[in-house]
Amino acid sequence: MIDSIARPTAAIRARPVLGAASVVALFVALWMALIWSPPDAAMGNVVRILYVHVANAWLAYLAFVVVFLASIAYLWTKRPAFDAIAVASAEIGVLFTGLTLVLGSIWAKPTWGVWWSWEPRVVTTAVMFAMYVGYLLLRNLSNDLERRATRAAVLGIVLVVDVPIVHLSVTWMNALHQLPTVLRPDLSPTLDPRMLASLVAMTIAFTIVYAYLMTARVDIERRRQARIIEARA
């Protein structure tokens, strides 16, 4: 049991490759975003924050959907690996949701004239951030491996309800925040082709970074689980 938990999986063995790919992809995406893509007609160079802001938000969605899927898988199979995936993804999701809020605030100042606006997308994102901080808090308050994993899995399933609310809030309610420009209902992005290519490149780069961080964090969690089981035996 302990051996199987501590044994590195294929994904963890791929970490050096993912690390190198992250550096290359980020370098290319940054070049595209900062140099190759044109400035916006209205916002000028301020628009360049879009590339990291949207990529951050995408990663937050992705991370919390992975928490949801890993939580279902844990309740279904009771395999600790899924709990490790859930906690790793939740931590990364909280980090990137926090960065999304900070970057959004920095972008809001020159475009909306304020650091913070009580508009639906911003507020629902802040609520989502608070929810997943609560998820991490719940995990930290229990030392029992199985109980902690079960409670966290139930919470991981309940909290995912907020992810579509955050994404669709700008469509449901009149708001300052711009409507979706890429993931639109009619699947026709409204961005300049070079801007769209830069945004896609940045999103791919961030997704590779997510995969790299996941392999590192899952590895740490698997070792922690093995230590707890060893201490209990």
Binding site: M131, G134, L138, V158, D162
Partner: peptide, 17 residues
């Protein structure tokens, strides 16, 4: 759980928004 008194409002209030 320890700190249950603090944890429940932290978890429940965002969901109750």
């Amino acid at each position: 759980l320890r700190a249950r008194g603090a944890l429940v409002p932290i978890l429940a209030l965002p969901v109750l928004v």
